[in-house]
Write a protein that binds this DNA or RNA. Structure first.
Lengths: 352, 352
DNA sequence: CTGAAAGCGCTTACAG
DNA sequence: CTGAAAGCGCTTACAG
């Protein structure tokens, strides 16, 4: 299948009997074209199926209307939702998306990823990698060297880092923990995510804070470090019960680990929620049909993605020549609030 | 933050005291450069942090090393795995990925999506949209009008359609059904996906075929059409039992619906697998920790994504001038085989 | 082994 | 309202 040469602006100009300049005016909807000329050119464009070459346009205009997105772990719930939010907001704003996936969140060879995006002349970069280990510190150096704005989604950033959009993960821990306390729990354990993840540490901190405020002692024996998988949740409950047999509630830092905890409870013959309250995080689609249906904390993930696009697009516009306004309306750290979803895996306040 | 002007090939040439032409030779690793010159230029490149502008390169070379990917339903298991496979294979082959998400699989306004990709000069397109309703028929017309190769992943295509990579969904139905029959089921129902989906119809056909071969009658009363969600699985079991009270096994066309079926069974006090065998499809991460752990059929999804990249890249190379070889080594329809994963939700063959 | 010229397909000032 | 010229940042023949 031989592909024929593509139609160019010259072909259109020739067919319409005008200069390429005039065709360009029509393409860009400039006002100063005679209505008659406009129509004629438009007709030729439709007839020939002409499509402007965006490479050429990008080369002359110095912008590509493309956002570079660097993400990790599309197979997980959070990242895939964030990405969906990103893509839709980008499309709605007229940007297309160049996606690069990272294999490990704490990887260090992202220099070439950023270089690749810069070489492809993206107008801005959205960094959708969770904060793990020290992967934020090298981002600092890289981000300032980038020729275009960069925004982080999925965590927080400090003073000298790019703007960020994240979920208030400490609030997640507080919401889950107070709900469990309200249900009358006397001994609440936690299965955390990997503690080199910021999100995992924050959820733990929220749990700890809330317990302390309530006058309870969040001892280390009540903490089990999982790895986000159902298996680690299962293992977690076994281990926690071994250490502290009278546990009557578990806050699992995601729904998959909560499922593992419930699985272990079933094996041990522990009734949920009567003997063990279980609360997760994420609100995965399966949660409402677990046995029993899982109480969980929902995060506004696609909203975070959408906001990231909004912020980076605003930064792009602010950085264009002719506009040297301070970006005061750009908050640097944005934290969105989670929502508790109560189902049957947690004991409720008993009236009276 | 004012961004300084980017370094161009001219800057490098000037600093190294050579022509841009020579710099270009170094960039592209051409052999005919004096070693000394090569080193000098390379050093300037490193010092200045020069990055070739890919737009300019694409404009002159007529290729962008970018693949356009059109996908649907990233929040679902299948699509997200396929996308992961796609991205990794693309990256490994030196291609970057321009991602567009569709909101409904049977949508008709994808003309502008394809036009957008063509305008951005992608070297090839991967169409990762499931076959729903008549969305393949309009693809036919569009695909042949595309100036670059297009490959479909996630279904099959006919004679006059682009090459396709898919999973053998009929085999999925057969695998699940024979496994259930082997376990001694006497009355097996099915909860299908939406029947305007090719995958759903094929899994149903595999179920039907297998039952017929076994001498059983796959009556319509044993078929419930779900919508892939856990809720529809739950509703499905209630309805099926109403119609046929002696059902002792259900093949659910995905794991989420299988979860819904198990949920309904728990509510009804039906023991799994003793009174009801349940088998799903997908092998989602949660399945191994359902109660009981779910028997399921796994699909090689990321392999399908990787193969799609391989096929489209081969087509790209074949379509480049100077190479008019028939693409005989390119099978047009590729069907990958699924694998059964046996856990505890299905009755096993009892020896003796 | 190296460079001057032309061109990829557009848009941006600049004239008229 | 419209066009001739120059240029975006590269690479591709073509000379030497």
């Amino acid at each position: 299948m031989t592909r024929r040469r593509r139609v160019t602006i010259r072909d259109v100009a020739q067919a319409a009997g005008v200069s390429t300049q005039t065709v360009s005016r029509v393409l860009n909807d400039r006002p100063d074209v005679a209505p008659e000329t406009f129509d004629r050119v438009q007709r030729v464009i439709a007839d020939t199926g002409y499509l402007p070459n965006m490479l050429a346009r990008g080369l002359t205009q110095g912008r590509t209307h493309t956002l570079g997105v660097v993400a990790y772990g599309l197979e997980y719930f959070g990242p895939s939702r964030i990405l969906t939010g990103l893509e839709q907001a980008a499309a709605a704003t007229g940007y297309s998306m160049s996606l690069t996936l990272i294999h490990r969140p704490e990887t260090e060879d992202v220099d070439e990823v950023l270089a690749g995006l810069a070489g492809r002349q993206v107008d801005g970069v959205i960094w959708a990698i969770p904060e793990v280990a020290s992967n934020r510190s090298w981002l600092r150096a890289r981000a300032s060297a980038m020729p275009v704005p960069l925004v982080v989604v999925g965590g927080t950033t400090g003073e000298d880092l790019p703007p960020s959009i994240g979920i208030d993960n400490r609030a997640i821990g507080r919401l889950a923990t107070s709900h469990i306390l309200d249900g009358g729990a006397r001994r609440m354990a936690i299965v955390t995510g990997p503690l080199d993840w910021w999100e995992a540490r924050e959820r733990l901190a929220g749990w700890r804070e809330t317990l302390e405020t309530a006058g309870s002692r969040p001892s280390d024996g009540l903490i089990f470090e999982g790895d986000w998988t159902p298996s680690s949740g299962e293992e977690g409950l076994y281990e926690l019960l071994r250490r502290t047999p009278d546990i009557d509630a578990v806050f699992a830092s995601n729904d998959q680990m909560a499922l593992g905890v419930m699985h272990a409870a079933h094996r041990l013959g522990l009734r949920i929620p009567d003997e063990l309250s279980v609360v997760g995080v994420d609100d995965i689609a399966e949660g409402s049909h677990f046995w029993p249906p899982l109480t969980t904390v929902q995060q506004p993930l696609s909203e975070a993605g959408a906001l990231a696009v909004e912020v980076v697009v605003r930064a792009i516009k602010a950085s264009r020549p002719g506009r040297h306004s301070e970006d005061t309306h750009l908050r640097r750290v944005n934290l969105l609030q989670p929502t508790l979803i109560v189902r049957q895996s947690s004991r409720q306040v008993t009236p009276g």
